[in-house]
Simulated scan of single mutants.
Amino acid sequence: MKLPPPFSPDAASNLEQLIASKPTPFLALDLSVIKKRYDELVGGFPDAEIYYAVKANPADEVIELLANSGSSFDIASIQELDKVLKFGVSPERISYGNTIKKASAVKYFFDRGVRLYATDSEADLINLSKNAPGSKVYIRILTDGSEGADWPLSRKFGCNPEMAVELAVMARDLGLIPYGVSFHVGSQQRDIDVWDGAIAKVKVIIDRLKQDYGITISMVNMGGGFPANYLLKTNDFSTYAEEITRFFKEDFGDDAPKLILEPGRSLVGDAGVIVSEVVLISRKSATALERWVYTDVGVFNGLIETLGEAIKYHVSTDKEGEVDEVILAGPTCDSLDIMYEHHKYELPLSLEIGDHIFWYSTGAYTTSYSSIEFNGFPPLEYHVI
Rank of each mutant, 00 (worst) to 15 (best):
M1C: 11
P4F: 10
P4A: 09
P6I: 12
P6K: 12
P9T: 08
A11V: 14
S13W: 04
S21K: 15
F26A: 05
A28K: 05
L29A: 01
G43E: 14
A48L: 09
P58N: 13
I63T: 04
F73L: 08
Q79T: 05
K86P: 07
G88L: 08
G88K: 09
V89Y: 02
R93M: 08
G97R: 06
K101Q: 09
S104R: 08
D111E: 15
N127R: 11
S129V: 05
G134W: 09
G145F: 12
A149G: 12
G158C: 07
A164M: 05
V165C: 14
E166P: 01
L167R: 12
V181R: 02
F183S: 02
G186C: 04
W195T: 01
D196V: 00
A198M: 06
V202N: 02
D207E: 14
R208F: 02
K210A: 13
D212M: 08
G214F: 05
I215M: 07
T216P: 00
M219F: 00
M222E: 02
G224A: 05
L232K: 12
L232M: 10
T234R: 04
K249L: 12
G253C: 07
D254L: 11
A256E: 03
G269D: 07
D270E: 14
V275S: 08
L280N: 14
R283E: 13
K284S: 15
V293I: 14
V299F: 08
N301V: 03
K312T: 10
T332G: 02
D334Q: 01
K344D: 12
E346Q: 14
L347E: 11
L347W: 12
L349K: 15
G354N: 07
W359Y: 04
S361F: 00
F374L: 06
N375P: 00
P378L: 05
L380N: 01
H383C: 06
